[in-house]
Design a protein around this nucleic acid. Structure first.
Length: 242
DNA sequence: AAACCTTGCAACCGCAGGCGC
DNA sequence: AGCGCCTGCGGTTGCAAGGTT
């Protein structure tokens, strides 16, 4: 097995140009033919997969350059509840945004907020992100999807309620069981969570705060309502969108 | 000013399902 | 039926730019 690090090879302007022409010619389906033709014309080595990714992630429609608006974020969160991690499905509701944009946005947002929130906290107080299932808890969801403008100091004074900590342990335990781990730069410590013994009672605890199944209302309105049940938790809705 | 850290984004990878032979 | 190829999709990684210390 090769230990060589993968190196992303950025697409050049002429590669994009030819790719566009070839997609026009063959349609956005026959990637083997497209890749062969592209490689012959430009003497490059692009696999069918690379061509497809390039097309669907960057070229297939006019890209929206503006940052995600509040409306878009709300929509993504709402659709994430409905469809789970089916980013391509979610992206269809957001004109100018591709599956890759939406996916990157969600992972980046969560990574940012996990780091911010965990800074200066004890291991037992930290959020360990292993799967999107933890977003079913409204308190955790609100923290992990906070906008960039939420200040570090806000996170410093925000702690998970007992309920949320237990929910997190349970969700991560199940995620571990499902072998569905996610990692962020190998920098997160899971040991303290994994070493915690979780009883069946805890797993079956119906008190975990989860989203209603058919969630249609404004997510932040519901967030406020739910947060009343968390006396130890300071609601942190402090978004600024530009 | 320099080193280090964070972030956004493009590209890559692995897997699963569809389809033809 | 089963094998191999192709496509689609979700998750992960590397890089570069900007920010922070």
């Amino acid at each position: 097995m090769s230990c060589e690090k993968r190196k992303p090879k950025l697409w050049k302007v002429d590669e994009d140009k030819i790719l566009k022409e070839l997609v026009k010619q063959y349609g956005p389906k026959h990637w083997t033919a497209i890749s062969q033709e592209l490689n012959i014309q430009l003497k490059v080595m692009r696999t069918p997969k690379q061509c497809r990714d390039r097309w669907f992630n960057n070229l297939c429609e006019e890209k929206k350059e503006a940052p995600f608006s509040r409306d878009e974020i709300n929509k993504i969160l709402d659709l994430q509840i409905q469809y789970g991690n089916q980013w391509s499905k979610i992206a269809k509701f957001l004109p100018g945004r591709t599956e890759n944009h939406v996916k990157n946005f969600m992972y980046a947002t969560i990574r940012r907020n996990v780091r911010k929130f965990n800074r200066g906290k004890l291991d037992s107080e930290k959020i360990v992100f292993k799967s999107f299932s933890i977003l079913s808890n409204l308190e955790i969801r609100e923290i992990l999807t906070a906008e960039k403008s939420v200040k570090n100091s806000t996170f410093l004074n925000t702690f998970l309620s007992r309920d949320a900590i237990e929910y997190l342990k349970n969700a991560n335990f199940r995620s571990e069981e499902n072998n569905n781990m996610l990692s962020f730069d190998h920098e997160l410590e899971y040991d303290n969570i994994l070493s915690t013994e979780i009883s069946d009672d805890l797993i079956n605890d119906a008190n975990y705060k989860t989203y209603p199944e058919n969630f249609d209302d404004d997510i932040f309105a519901v967030a406020s309502e739910y947060s009343e049940g968390f006396p130890e938790y300071t609601p942190m809705i402090d978004f600024e969108f530009h």
